[in-house]
Design a protein around this nucleic acid. Structure first.
Length: 848
RNA sequence: GGGCGAUUAGCUCAGCUGGCUAGAGCACCUCGUUUACACCGAGGGGGUCGGGGGUUCGAGUCCCUCAUCGCCCACCA
């Protein structure tokens, strides 16, 4: 079948994907190599649409997997989707609000099953989006984060930790969003610079000998104060140590204590201590065995031990009212404006309240230790390398991980509390039951669910059926974990810790982190800014292949980068170039053309040389995850070497076997990047019965470098001819030469340079070329040449300066003594070339 | 406060272990409708590689320092 003039992606993409699926081409199979290669896709939110970041992720992962598949390895790209606990919960709450309902209208069980259905309906979007992006994922292994095997793995991990004493339940401060009604891990809190006031409040000494002034940004929390702290060395307050003060408003007597943590320079140097509502105060209270008094509730209003008139008021209102009361009773000394950083909910921007809550915590230090060791031993290669160091220092400073979440959407925590002794908890997986009986005692289930990251941190091995599955044996540890740099801490760090804890091995041997894709102005994309680019729209507009290559072009591991549509346009144009190259080749390759290339001309040698170089470079670059550079190498080979030179040179006399072999090789090395168009061309050509996707990575026969160099000379002659023609405004001029190799390429040179003729002579006339070793002349009149004098002069001057630089270098004894031989040789050659050029130029100039 | 990274052509970025007469894409200028392709081809202009200092025969590349920008972590009573 004959190819059309332009490539129309939507005519081929879905058919090609269906063809792959029909042949089960995505399933990992050994094809010549005993090795395997494995990636699990970081599961996107099952409820949402894919964004540009997913598009980039899938492109990069798919390129790596397609390449290794062609290298003959059993290669797996495992797809999945995330229930995305809190994320989906937020979406669903909004949906409920649109119906005029709220989470308080339903039980947790009802909510769970509603959300299950809600997600199920939207899940199909993302399946088709994976296909549109060309991801060669093995659909048979598709895993959802709420699949039984994933849930069971979370239970097993929890149980093992429980038995190993790594899980504990404690009343600690939890970062709590009072709007969403759930706690977070420290890492999920967004800190923002916020304007506020620093209030200076007098706390009278109980013995009546005066007062001590404390500074606070949160006067309302004084209702829960249990001490005032000063630095032990602070001379101003030495005399007060051991005394007590009375808390204004509530008139509670509290001690004045000393602690190194107090900063003498900040505020008044005296701090009120509210252990139930501030992490530092909590820590200090631990050290000094101070009581904790909670005065703020989970809904963000003041609660019981607060004086009656405050109960039920929001924190903000209570703050104003306390401030007024302090003014009224004369204890407010001053109020200064300050900017300080305040934790906010990353979804709803509500100020995070540190609240006392009994929750499940993981002792992280003992998990972090082996992870740190593994990282220090380089068990995992990081792209970019700098992330390793960052991760180590993060792991060295971890606080215990709060894994309880007070939302309905997630995996229920398999823990039950004794109805007889509230301090007694047991592990049990009968989470569908509200309460269970064991040994005659009734136990009630914890209503909380796991932090999503807890279960998703088992993703690398849980998806592979740890511990007994074949997949686990064949594909673990994963070859690479490719994901966003923003989830290095919340996800990658925990996968490493849990992987080592559960399997005894690192979960992956490399980590590739891509940066954020910003909008074209370098701003973060967000729905509220309205600057979000939908990858699927771009796929429809430019084609999936163009999207993949455009989105990865210019990509460097770890760094953020603006979205550049012109790169997708460029990639679309490149696809069209591929298409038309194939059209040309198809026309010039008869049916009986041998598959093996017959290497005849200098151009053949030259092209094979380039092809081999490119193929090796692309392989090496993909193996080291330098995708953008690999794409560049292909791009320039196809456009510059093959299309602009070899095909142009072929127009006189084509070598069908070379055209065929080169096109096939190009389709292969392009395939990981542009899977649809390459497979579409491959199928249209019909030269092979196998699919391109499972064909072998090309093996390029050796060419002779000397012959290849001959073609370089031809290129020089053509290029210089074009330059002279343009510079002097010539029409179909004639060139003269003395060389047989030039004769052999006569027709090509005439066509490519648009010459009148190429004549073999004994001694040429006109202007001699300077860029080629062969004597070649442009046959021009002195009149025509006179327009060119200025150029000749500037060329000569330039050569002079090059020469003096090279001479200086060679005259330097330090250089000739220390520089490696090949560098010196190179310099000598450059000097010789330059000298020859100057000689020619001087000769030409003599005529004027 | 600690850490990491960036600063190279108008724009977006390559340049890995020092050898560069500093590259690419886009944009720009000139020329060209040659039947694979105008989603094209040919030719060209444009950079003292953020400033300063150092190491070296040689520095965009290594070291120090300053400046600007970005990100992350901690603290901010």
């Amino acid at each position: 079948m004959k190819l059309t003039t332009t490539y129309e992606p939507d005519k081929y993409e879905s058919k090609v994907y269906a063809l792959w699926e029909k042949h089960d081409a995505f399933a990992p199979k050994h094809r010549g190599s005993q090795d395997s290669y494995s990636i699990v896709v970081p599961p996107p939110n099952a409820n949402g649409d894919l964004h540009l970041g997913h598009g980039l992720t899938l492109a990069l992962e798919d390129i790596a997997v397609r390449y290794h598949r062609m290298k003959g390895k059993a290669s797996l790209l495992l797809p999945g989707a995330d229930h995305a606990g809190f994320e989906t919960w937020v979406v669903y709450e909004k949906y409920l609000a649109s119906l005029g309902k709220s989470r308080f209208d339903y039980s947790r069980e009802e909510l769970y099953s509603q959300i299950w259905d809600f997600v199920d309906k939207n899940k199909t979007n993302y399946l088709s989006q994976f296909r549109a992006l060309g991801a060669s994922v093995d659909w048979g292994r598709y895993t959802y984060t709420l699949d039984t095997k994933i849930v069971n793995q979370a239970y097993k991990t929890f149980e093992k930790m429980w038995q190993d004493g790594l899980i504990y339940r404690a009343e600690k401060l939890v970062s709590f969003c009072t709007y969403h009604g759930t706690g977070f891990a420290d890492i999920e809190v967004t800190h923002k610079e916020t304007k506020g006031y620093l209030w200076h409040v007098d706390y009278p000494l109980t013995d009546g000998s005066g007062y001590i002034t404390v500074a606070t940004t949160r006067p309302e929390t004084l209702l829960g104060d249990t001490a005032v702290a000063v630095h032990p060395d602070d001379a101003r307050y030495k005399k007060y140590i051991g005394k007590t003060v009375t808390v204004p408003v509530v008139n509670r007597e509290i001690p004045i204590i000393t602690d190194e943590a107090v900063d003498q320079a900040f505020g008044t140097g005296a701090v009120k201590i509210t252990p139930a509502h501030d992490q530092n105060d909590f820590d200090m209270a631990e050290r000094h065995s101070l009581p904790r008094i909670s005065v703020i509730g989970h809904d963000g209003t003041m609660i019981d031990p607060s004086p009656e008139q405050y109960i039920g008021l929001s924190v903000a209102v209570a703050r104003d009212k306390i401030a007024q009361e302090l003014v009224d009773n004369g204890s407010l000394r001053q109020r200064e404006e300050i900017t300080h950083s305040v934790g906010h909910c990353y979804k709803c921007d509500t100020i995070i309240e540190p609240l006392l809550r009994e929750q499940w915590f993981i002792r992280v230090a003992s998990l972090a230790k082996p992870a740190i060791q593994a990282l220090k031993k380089d068990a995992i290669t990081f792209y970019p390398a700098s992330k390793k160091k960052q991760l180590i220092s993060y792991l060295e400073n971890l606080r215990d991980w709060n894994i309880s979440r007070q939302i309905a959407w997630g995996i229920p925590i398999p823990a039950f509390q004794s109805s007889e002794d509230p301090s007694e908890w047991i592990f049990d997986t009968r989470v569908k039951e509200e309460s269970i009986t064991k040994g005659g005692v009734v136990y009630h289930r914890d209503h909380d669910v796991f932090d999503t990251w807890f279960s998703s941190s088992s993703w690398p091995y849980a998806t592979l059926d740890f511990p007994d599955g074949n997949d686990f044996k064949n594909f673990y540890p994963l070859s690479v974990m490719e994901t966003g740099a923003d989830i290095l801490y919340p996800w990658v760090s925990r996968m490493i810790m849990l992987g080592l804890y559960t399997t005894g091995e690192v979960p992956f041997t490399s980590v590739y982190l891509h940066g954020l894709i910003q909008d074209e102005n370098g701003q973060k994309m967000s729905k509220s800014k309205g600057n979000v680019v939908n990858p699927i729209e771009k796929v429809h507009e430019f084609g999936s292949d163009a999207f993949r290559m455009g989105i990865l072009s210019g990509e460097t591991a770890g760094s953020n980068r603006p979205y550049t549509e012109s790169k997708i346009v460029g990639a679309r144009n490149f696809c069209n170039k591929l298409w038309n190259v194939a059209r040309f080749v198809q026309e010039h390759v008869p049916k009986d053309t041998p598959q093996k290339p017959e290497i005849v001309s200098a151009a053949d040698h030259w092209l094979l040389n380039k092809l081999q170089h490119t193929t090796d470079a692309v392989a090496g670059l993909i193996e080291t995850y330098r995708f953008s550079e690999a794409y560049n190498a292909i791009y320039h080979f196809v456009r510059d070497d093959f299309a602009d030179w070899y095909i142009e040179a072929s127009k006189g006399s084509a070598n069908p076997s070379m055209l065929r072999f080169t096109l096939e090789s190009i389709l292969k090395i392009c395939h990981p990047f542009a899977p649809f168009i390459t497979e579409a061309i491959w199928q249209q050509l019909g030269w092979s019965s196998e699919l391109l996707i499972v064909s072998a990575w090309p093996d390029i026969p050796k060419a002779h470098t000397a012959h290849a160099k001959d073609f370089e000379e031809i290129k020089q002659i053509v290029t210089e001819s074009r330059q002279l023609i343009l510079a002097m405004g010539l029409k179909k001029p004639q060139i003269e030469h003395t060389n047989d190799i030039v004769d052999a390429h006569k027709e090509s040179i005439i066509r490519m340079a648009k010459l009148g003729d190429v004549v073999h002579v004994k001694q040429g006339r006109g202007l001699q070329f300077i860029s080629t070793r062969h004597p070649v002349w442009m046959h021009v009149t002195d009149e025509e040449m006179s327009h060119y004098k200025d150029t000749l002069v500037s060329q000569r001057n330039e050569q002079h300066s090059i020469q003096s630089r090279l001479k200086q270098r060679l005259d330097n004894p330090g250089y000739t003594k220390s520089a490696p031989e090949h560098v010196i040789t190179q310099t000598r050659d450059q000097l010789k070339e330059s000298e020859a050029a100057v000689q020619l130029l001087e000769k030409e100039l003599e005529r004027f």
